[in-house]
């Protein structure tokens, strides 16, 4: 569903990714793990078009997307839940969710009705968001914002969802909750690319995982194998 080949990317003078290749099959959960600064977020940003990759190709559903801008890629069915959540703080929870479906909803009228089904689904998944429908997103707690960011991505009916550090800055209880949601998404057949610094959390839900170190993929394999791999440990604790 999503294939990256030899992707190089970076910001200004900094080259962060030095040619990474990986693939995500339809309906699978793939994890990208590694220490801070390994280039996980950069990889995500390159895939979703927030930064243009310098080299390499990225295919979404057999269609090259590496030369497109973020908005186009979103229309093609890629939803990216960014690191740090990035909800639209001055907008209500409901509007945030509606904007998640911007790609396929009618832009002027009748979008509420069309989005009702998705909206219900999200509200079922996150009852807390239903309670806070009309509240401004900026006033939500960190955990609720993370739920909203994921809910917003679900609204897009994506072919692939990228989840960047869904546990960042959250209390352990909330982290558990977030991961149980991810597991539910997986059960519903969502294709997921998950970036996570909590390796064991990520490995617990993933079907397959890649370990990133300093912009290169150093190990890959099934979670059971990786749990035992010493290289994974060194990648984290140095």
């Amino acid at each position: 569903m999503l294939i990256c080949e030899q992707v190089h990317a970076g910001y200004g003078n900094v080259r962060v990714l030095h040619g990474i290749s990986f693939a995500v099959q339809a309906g699978k959960v793939v994890a990208l793990i590694g220490a801070n600064g390994a280039g996980k977020t950069t990889a995500m940003r390159a895939i979703s078009g927030l930064i243009g990759p310098d080299q390499g190709s990225i295919m979404l559903d057999r269609q090259p997307i590496h030369h497109l801008e973020a908005a186009r890629i979103a229309h093609l069915g890629l939803a990216h839940v960014p690191e740090g959540r990035h909800v639209f703080a001055p907008l209500t929870v409901e509007d945030n969710l509606l904007l998640g479906a911007y790609g396929w909803l009618p832009r002027l009228f009748g979008f509420r009705r069309k989005a009702a089904q998705e909206m219900d689904r999200v509200m079922q998944l996150f009852p807390k968001l239903a309670e806070r429908r009309r509240q401004l997103a900026g006033t939500l707690s960190g955990g609720e914002q993370q739920m909203l960011a994921i809910g917003r991505a679900i609204m897009a009916r994506p072919k692939v969802m990228l989840l960047d550090e869904p546990s960042m800055g959250l209390a352990p209880v909330i982290v558990q909750e977030v991961f149980s949601i991810i597991r539910r998404l997986k059960d519903q057949g969502m294709t997921l690319l998950l970036v996570e610094q909590f390796a064991s959390h990520a490995l617990a839900v993933a079907d397959y995982a890649y370990v990133l170190e300093r912009g290169r993929i150093v190990v890959q394999g099934y979670p059971e194998e990786l749990m035992k791999n010493e290289q994974v440990v060194t990648a984290y604790l140095g």
Partner: peptide, 14 residues
Amino acid sequence: AALAADRDAAGLMG
């Protein structure tokens, strides 16, 4: 409003 609030996130919404 979305664009005014967060440019990158708006892009990700399409």
